[in-house]
Design a protein around this nucleic acid. Structure first.
Length: 311
DNA sequence: GGTTATTGATACGGGCGCCA
DNA sequence: TGGCGCCCGTATCAATAACC
């Protein structure tokens, strides 16, 4: 076993087994105690946080928080990580957006010198467009606080901006879920001020503080876990060739052709009602809403309002 | 084959805990 | 409090392996 391999092995052994004497480590690695002393010395020189206990019942320990960078990534894996990092930046994942450059450089630093420019050329040509909403800045440490609150099941205290009333309110929240939806990040939880479930857009949280008190959810909110957006059924008449274009879109995930003639008559089950309306408005010659009637009426009203404005 | 690095064996000093 | 055992720290020397 090479010295560097043995040094790694000592770290792993101490991480796994806790405190051991040089004699015990030597026995495990089948080398002399003296060799272990030299390895321990070498580890100390490279700032591995070893704890030494001298005397009776002495030995060596390693700081339990010491992180072992044991994963050697291939260039392909690094590329994938940087793509994910870029997605994280474009999705404005709190923290990732802020630390993007430092993280990107760390990953680039892990690949060969000739691999780095190649990857940069690719990244220059890699673009992600998230155009649903464009969230503002997040308050500092929002991500860390949310992660901690969800991990430890502790309440948070928020200062939340409500644009409709142009007001700031302070409220205690028991966080339940952290989600990304239609271009924005949201914290869902039980609001103790409103005594109800609320969804908080992250960029409207103006301050956040982790509280010591445990989360509380009323019994009738236990169904939180199984909650899902209610899906509705829509019947659309769609041009056959246009169907081929849109059939893999999100809102088409749960669709079936119920009549196959000059046009397809398609039943779609989705919670993306806005997308159905937008689809019908943008493509009147290719898409016609048949059901529900409420959507047809809604479309008529939009068209009527538009025709009055743009006479 | 010479040089350098690594390893093993041995010895000694000193810290620490236990115990009479 | 001092002896004892256990262990870490350091030094030295010789043997061996790796490298040029």
């Amino acid at each position: 076993m090479k010295k560097i391999e043995r040094m790694n092995a000592i770290i792993y052994i101490l991480k796994e087994k806790g405190k051991l004497t040089a004699k015990e480590i030597a026995k495990l690695l089948d080398v002399s105690e003296r060799t272990i002393y030299r390895d321990i010395d070498a580890l100390s020189q490279i700032k591995v946080p070893l704890i030494t206990y001298e005397g009776h019942q002495g030995g060596y320990e390693i700081d339990p928080n010491y992180f072992i960078p044991s994963i050697k990534l291939t260039e392909a894996e690094i590329t994938n990580f940087i793509i994910l990092l870029t997605l994280g930046k474009e999705l404005k994942v709190p923290g990732v957006h802020r630390d993007y450059e430092a993280l990107r450089l760390k990953l680039l630093n892990a690949i060969t010198q000739d691999g780095s420019p190649k990857l940069n050329r690719f990244l220059d040509k890699f673009k992600v467009y998230i155009n649903r909403i464009n969230p503002g800045d997040y308050v500092e440490h929002i991500m860390e606080t949310i992660i901690k609150s969800l991990e430890e099941e502790k309440k948070v205290k928020l200062t939340y901006y409500t644009p409709l009333k142009d007001t700031l309110t302070e409220r205690e929240v028991s966080p339940y879920r952290f989600t990304f939806d239609e271009g924005g990040w949201y914290l869902i939880g039980y609001c103790h001020l409103r005594e109800d479930k609320r969804t908080f857009r992250l960029d409207r949280i103006k301050s956040i503080e982790l509280l010591h008190s445990n989360c509380y959810f009323p019994i009738d909110m236990v169904s939180f876990e199984n909650e899902s957006k209610s899906k509705s059924s829509y019947h659309l008449q769609i041009d056959r060739s246009f169907y081929e274009i849109i059939k893999h879109n999100d809102y088409m995930e749960d669709n079936k052709i119920i009549e196959d003639s000059e046009f397809f008559t398609v039943e779609i089950c989705t919670d993306y009602e806005d997308s159905i309306i937008e689809l019908a408005l943008k493509n009147p010659t290719s898409v016609k809403v048949l059901e529900p009637q409420s959507i047809c009426e809604h479309l008529k009203k939009i068209v009527k309002d538009l025709s009055q404005i743009y006479t």
